[in-house]
Design a protein around this nucleic acid. Structure first.
Lengths: 203, 203
DNA sequence: TCAAAATTCGAGTGAGTACTCGAATTTTAT
DNA sequence: ATAAAATTCGAGTACTCACTCGAATTTTGA
């Protein structure tokens, strides 16, 4: 009848500082994976950023892939994944533009997703399932919003909601890559607005 | 007055089989980099694919990054980079669809570009300049074609040629990523056609 | 207080990395 | 034919990698 589900003879929770420590590790790992990718980033590098030994790091995240998945979940949990807009009254186009500008301001977010997403298609990458499910979820979510717009007669005739959903996500990812390579030549928000104004009819 | 420009006292060209050997290395490296990325792929792995020693491989390509750049140039040289359509009479939309289908059929091409392009934004990646210039070139090329269409009155009003160029490229890259993760859920050619039919007016 | 659990880390381990060196072998121009 | 150059590769270098082990230290609940 302990606080935990299993009636183990003896168990205690983590220390008070433990959650902060884990968070500090996630922050550092986020930066390292964004700058070097998963394969290019090392646990030693992450540990150095935190100011702890590599061994201690492995106490919190037993393997490197555990750390990666934790970083991805953590990033989604604090920043939203675009699926759930905070304001249900907000226009789709406004929500997309707002999220695009928000990402632009937080260093490393776009790098992390762009680099890890593409890297995840390689053999045996631990992030593959995460990104596959993420795209599935996003496609369903946006398809639903486009379907709603279609029912209101506000989708340009001939545009299929599912195709528009996949296209919007693709456009978003692709323009982020171009922006990372030459930020001055690319207007992310403008590109997304241009597409949405093409697909969604005004008023 | 030797065949070479520099009047070195003694120089001989490579052996007859040398070009085949280099090509075999490029083929193997293409496969390895497509499957594991640049950082995840090893010279030993490439050498094993070719059936030669790692040391011999380094005789042809002195460093790993030399090999990467050679693979990228080689791929562009045999497959075209989308900039120069073989038939100048071909419609833009037809050319894009044809190239998309072509890429889909050759294993590893889409993997190579998608993985290496995103990886190239990481710190100190040797492919960064290649992809930056590639995007610059592609944007200019497509912007030119869209401008041409605009002059013919066949660009939807309100669409800017430069924005459409960046968007088309972004869409293409982004949809390839989704296709790699779940090929059955994504119709690459359909997605591109959908966008172009939205932007380019018929006839 | 005090013992059990959580945390920390130094010191490895074995495997893999890109790359070097020197020498043997193969090709080729003369 | 023969000598020089091109090619091959075994062996090794110095390094990094993720991860393990065992023991010391710190925190915590009772």
């Amino acid at each position: 009848m302990t606080t935990n589900e299993a009636s183990r003879p003896s168990r205690r929770g983590p220390y008070a500082k433990s959650t902060e420590r884990r968070q500090a590790i996630l922050v550092a790992a986020h930066a390292v994976f964004a700058a070097h990718g998963y394969r290019g980033g090392s646990l030693q590098d992450v540990a150095d950023h935190v100011g702890m030994s590599q061994t201690s790091l492995l106490h919190y995240f037993p393997t490197k892939s555990d750390l990666l998945l934790a970083v991805l979940d953590w990033r989604d949990s604090i920043s939203g994944d675009g699926t759930t807009p905070p304001d249900p009254e907000e226009t789709l186009i406004d929500a997309v533009i707002r999220q695009a500008r928000f990402n632009e301001e937080i260093p490393g977010v776009i790098e992390l997703y762009t680099v890890l997403c593409a890297e995840s298609v390689t053999d045996g990458h631990p992030g593959r399932e995460f990104f596959t499910e993420r795209f599935d979820r996003l496609r369903r979510s946006y398809a639903q919003r486009f379907t709603q717009l279609a029912q209101e007669g506000r989708l340009r005739p001939g545009v299929q909601p599912e195709a528009a959903a996949a296209s919007l996500i693709a456009l978003w990812d692709g323009i982020q890559t171009q922006w990372l390579l030459s930020p001055k030549s690319v207007d992310m928000a403008g590109c997304l607005r241009g597409y949405l104004e093409l697909v969604v009819l005004p008023e």
